[in-house]
Design a protein around this nucleic acid. Structure first.
Length: 611
RNA sequence: CAGGGUGUAGCUCAGUUUGGUAGAGCGUGUGGUUUGGGUCCACAAGGUCGCAGGUUCAAAUCCUGUCACCCUGACCA
């Protein structure tokens, strides 16, 4: 159907009308064998995506329409939040990383290639360097700030293991935004810009029709709640999120604090003689526990970290070389908490050097605080309690029973420069909430679709992005950066919203709003009805797909459910004889109902506005 | 990167153990039939058996190498 292209200053949005026979929607009864997750299976079967290589996909017409709609919402909200769109190249010259050294941080994740002159080139995994370089050449004065810029671009990351279709790709579409400020606080400061982005993100994901949770994520260099992740709630999500039902506090596992827990005073008497047990060839806590007939929650897991420097680059030199972190056997050490409690930058100890220093890796006990010089012992509250404990014996293939803090570690426990007790492990469901006394944390799963954080001067320092401030002094620009996985959002939406028969699109990001199915595509009366309805719907801004294929009804209905457009209108003789057509919302079960012709458009619009 | 697995028609797979020159279902095309939830029938097109080398009279099948892809884990600003 021809659209009126006459020139006008502003166009009232009118919907499109497309015919199935004129677009490419290769639906399939079976999904490719490598598809396992619902979004991968359904997007493949419904003809949205095709795999080109591992983690690389074609976006077919339906997918592209949805991606365009997500992008349109992103653009509107970003523009409203004062950010301006630009477009930067995929190609990043390797020189851009010479100062930030991020190619080292990224490692093999960075796609690289050589041009014909032998120059090394990267395919951008994100664009901090490119935009910092660009702004450096264009902004010199505080008067030009604050500034916020964004783009929607294809990004490249050579993931070790792409998986789950669009959820973890090597080539994907991302909206990335960067903000530039002279101050952290006050009008126009980083915090202002960050809050504006936070609100824009809430608007974006709400408008997309997603069920999502905003969680606190690992803080940036500025501290506080400087980073948030936007997670689509869905059981198949890769990430665990924790929520306090009373205060509304939510955080990811890396970040989640745990409320006050009882801790030991190290005065309990031993439960028995320290007994050594031969435990050969047992790789994990689980196996060792079974062998010794001790439950994991009665074992102490002792993890060795090495100190790599002060927590802040300008901090004092570390007084320790090693950190041993003791948690209950059924708990997991949280590296961020090890950092926070120790005040050092740390990494998991390299096995060779740790052995050389005297740690029997795999069999370490807290007693090594007394045997390896320069060691700091951190104990999780739950592990500091009294009672029976089993732990390593500090020699290969042996563990001990009846470990007792006071008897076996001794006076070091009273020296706060050598031993600290606190929150050291990943939070779990049922843990005390850190924000609301008496409340318990709950867990859920999520898919990360957005991430915002405060960068501070990390890039401007490294790359020399400075402006002259009001006092005519050079000052490093303070930055924030804000990402949305556009293609991942589409997949996350399918994960969140589908049934056995197919996708169930929320109206705002459905490829089309209404599917008009002709039972007899050759029947002039049905054709005329379809044309009339489509024109009327398009007038109201609805995008319409007309299934004009000469297929059996069963095939058309199955395909309709599969591609998941929010509203289906079926034009057939039965309803026409009653002076109407059949109307059905995708999310409603059953057959739909016959609606009088005059009411159809109104009913559709109502259904679509409801989501 | 470690461990496991798979590459045969557009898709899902059988055939490989025991070598003899390639099959099914779905999909596609043609004809008929059927017409409100993946009709039924007939005929047809479609495959360098991932790639390279080797053994053999003969290789999808055995051997060697290589590439790709998948799963679990590690990793994931």
């Amino acid at each position: 159907m021809a659209t009126d292209r006459t020139f006008s200053l502003s166009t009232t949005r009118s919907g499109v009308t497309h015919r199935w026979s004129q677009t490419l929607i290769p639906t399939a009864r079976e999904a490719p064998s490598d598809a396992e997750t619902p979004s991968h299976i359904l997007l493949s079967r419904a003809g949205f995506i095709r795999k080109v290589a591992a983690g690389v996909y074609d976006y077919l017409p339906l997918a592209w329409r949805t991606l365009t709609k997500i992008s349109a919402i992103v653009r509107q909200e970003m523009d409203d939040a004062g950010s301006r769109e630009l477009f930067m190249p995929v190609i990043v010259p390797m020189e851009f990383y010479s100062e930030t050294r991020r190619h080292e941080a990224y490692g093999p994740l960075l796609f690289q290639l050589d041009d014909r002159k032998g120059n090394r080139i990267a395919l951008g995994p994100t664009h901090e360097e490119t935009i910092t370089e660009m702004v450096k050449g264009s902004v010199n004065s505080y008067k030009q700030l604050p500034l916020s810029l964004y783009q929607i671009q294809t990004k490249f990351r050579d993931e070790a293991r792409p998986r789950a279709g669009l959820l973890r790709c090597r080539e994907f579409i991302m909206k990335d935004a960067y903000s530039f400020h002279v101050a952290i606080d006050g009008p126009g400061g980083l915090n202002d810009g960050y809050d504006a982005m936070y609100k824009a993100y809430v608007n974006i994901f709400t408008r997309c029709g997603l069920d999502f949770t905003v969680v606190e994520a690992e803080s940036g260099p500025i501290g506080g709640s400087a980073s948030h992740e936007f997670m689509v709630n869905c059981a198949s999500g890769e990430d665990t999120i924790l929520k306090c039902p009373v205060s509304g506090y939510a955080a990811n596992v890396e970040k989640c604090e745990i409320g006050e827990r009882p801790r030991g005073a190290f005065i309990e008497p031993p439960t028995g003689e320290l007994t050594e047990v031969h435990t050969p060839n047992l790789p994990g806590i689980e196996e060792v526990g079974k062998f010794m007939k001790v439950k994991p929650d009665r074992m102490l897991k002792t993890i060795v970290f090495q100190v790599t420097g002060p927590a802040q680059s300008d901090g004092p030199a570390p007084a320790h070389k090693w950190i041993i972190a003791a948690v209950r056997g059924d708990h997991e050490v949280n590296e961020g908490k090890v950092k926070a409690m120790s005040g050092y930058a740390v990494q998991l100890a390299e096995e060779k050097s740790a052995r050389a220093a005297g740690f029997a890796i795999g069999y370490v006990s807290p007693r090594t605080i007394n045997s390896v010089p320069g060691t700091l012992l951190l104990i999780d509250a739950d592990a500091s309690l009294g009672g029976f404990w089993a732990t390593g014996s500090d020699e290969p293939d042996h563990h001990v029973k009846h470990f007792n803090w006071r008897r076996d570690v001794g006076a070091a426990l009273d020296d706060i420069s050598r031993v600290k007790v606190g929150d050291l492990r990943n939070a779990l469901a049922g843990d005390p909430s850190p924000r609301s006394p008496g409340a318990r944390l709950e867990t859920g799963r999520g898919i990360e679709v957005g991430h915002i954080f405060k960068l501070g001067t990390k890039y401007s320092d490294a790359m020399g992005l400075k402006v002259l401030d009001q006092q005519q002094k050079q000052q490093a620009v303070i930055m924030g950066c804000y990402g949305i996985g556009v293609s991942r959002t589409m997949a996350a939406c399918v994960e969140m919203s589908h049934d056995d028969n197919g996708i169930i699109w929320p109206a705002p990001i459905a490829p089309y709003h209404v599917l008009i199915t002709l039972m007899k595509p050759d029947d002039p009366r049905q054709q005329e009805t379809a044309r009339t309805l489509a024109a009327s719907l398009a007038d109201r801004g609805a995008d319409v797909l007309i299934d004009d294929r000469d297929e059996r009804p069963g095939v058309k209905f199955k395909d309709a459910d599969l591609i998941g457009l929010p509203v289906r209108i079926t034009i057939g003789d039965k309803a026409l004889e009653q002076g109407g057509v059949e109307l059905k919302a995708r999310r409603d079960p059953g057959k739909g109902e016959v609606v009088a012709m005059a009411d159809v458009t109104g009913r559709c619009v109502t259904l679509l506005q409801a989501g």
